[in-house]
Amino acid sequence: MSTLTLAKAINEGLRTAMEDDSKVLVMGEDVGKLGGVFRVTDGLQKDFGESRVIDTPLAESGIIGTAIGLALRGYRPVCEIQFDGFVFPAADQIITQLAKMPLRSLGKLKLPVVVRIPCGGGIGAVEHHSESPEAYFTHTGGLRVVACSNPVDGFHMIQQAIRCDDPVIFFEPKRRYWEKAEVEKGAVPLAFDRGQVLRPGTDVTVLAYGPMVKTCLEAAAAVAEEGRSLEVIDLRSLNPLDTELIFESVRKTGRCVIAHEAPVYSGLGAEIAARITEACFYNLEAPVLRAGGFSTPYPPSRLEDHYLPDLDRVLDTVDRTFAF
């Protein structure tokens, strides 16, 4: 058992994966000597060398495109996209090539490429450094999309993503990088395409992932004093979704709130709400409601507290489900 921050837990997960399999490579901008701008790859180049921890030219499409080529040669590259807003130059390679090549080959090719993306806001950053682009990728068949929310998952899920033969988009909530938890490295982890009930409850199911998990757990703790019982589920996997876990909870509570930083409109919450409505129609006491970002570009950081759904916005949404 050791106490790790999320950033350190992912770092240790990467290190373990690299020790376990010599084909695992880390590549990205500033991942070498600097250890990445968030230090997630700290010390890896020193210990595994420049041929396994590759400081790349500043070209995101190049990072993903060459990672595909390395994967075709039998390597398992883990790519770091420095910030969420910089993934778009790589979107072509991710969507037209990475996601589709296994199908194009009728299953003869596997592309075990992990794309790590620090995501979300809340750190007072400049434009393009606070985005939540997950829905672009959950909409693309051929990709698996996961989001870790805590050090335990950070350590285990990164290793599971690396071991997976499919391409994985791996979201890391950057404002939670410094959150600490006890990590049991030898534990048998939950499958990385499953969700997890982090706080059982009876009145409302609250679904979250990545940075919003902590916010929702705090919200649940706050209303518990008022006698309201929220069941908080960390989705962990965004494509595929662990729908059975979600449905089971909603059938019990009859109410559901989905929280994400990304804009509500056409966000992942819309997909989840539609699926809950279809599967749990007769169990619902209220429409599924969503708390999330506005349908605007991410605002300047002095306004981000208004944009991001915080504890009060989540609880306001919870309150609204009781208005029906």
Binding site: I64, G65, A67, I68, A71, L72, R73, Q97, K108
Partner: peptide, 30 residues
Amino acid sequence: DPAEHNFHLYTIVIGSQTLHAVGYAMGIQR
């Protein structure tokens, strides 16, 4: 099967395969 022939699949998006070839070549180096 690309591996059987050492001939990758046809790529329709213009130029995408140049990066795959470079990545593959980096694998050869390693």
